[in-house]
């Protein structure tokens, strides 16, 4: 199964992938360090699920989310963000994100995500 992990922090990506592989050891993970790269990879690779950060340089998560939803209205995007304001959550869900999970990601949170979107 193909996953796209988008975060400007290399170690945040690493940590997320590590947690993901606890449940999906065979997962194929593609990484992007900003929204612009993510949108290109999304187009080329059609990943099953996208883990998307919000605050990033070049192109932020809101913009990337908008573009991904334009490319595929059924895109499975999970926003993983440090921004835990209710309004941020309302906004990303309105843009088409399936879930919004506060950082940092841990096993429990990952299981919840996978149960809703994959299993």
């Amino acid at each position: 199964m193909k996953f796209l992990v988008v975060d400007d922090s290399k170690l945040a990506r690493l940590s997320l992938i590590k947690t993901l592989k606890e449940y999906e050891p065979t997962a194929e993970c593609i990484e992007a360090e900003n929204g612009a790269v993510a949108v290109e990879l999304f187009k080329a690779e059609s990943p099953r699920v996208v883990f998307l950060d919000l605050t990033m340089p070049v192109m932020d998560g809101y913009e990337a989310l908008k573009l991904m939803m334009q490319i595929d209205s059924n895109a499975q995007v999970v926003v993983v963000s440090a921004d835990i304001q209710t309004q941020a959550q309302v906004q990303v869900l309105a843009l088409g994100a399936k879930l919004m999970v506060p950082k940092p990601i841990n096993s429990d949170k990952m299981l919840g995500i996978l149960q809703q979107l994959v299993f």
């Binding site: 922090s9 170690l11 440090a82 921004d83 304001q85 209710t86």
Partner: peptide, 20 residues
């Protein structure tokens, strides 16, 4: 630096929510 930046990002997220 990457770790610290990410932790600061998370911390700032909490602070922003509190101030919000």
């Amino acid at each position: 630096l990457d770790v610290l930046k990410e932790l600061m990002n998370i911390a700032m997220g909490n602070a922003t929510a509190s101030i919000a």
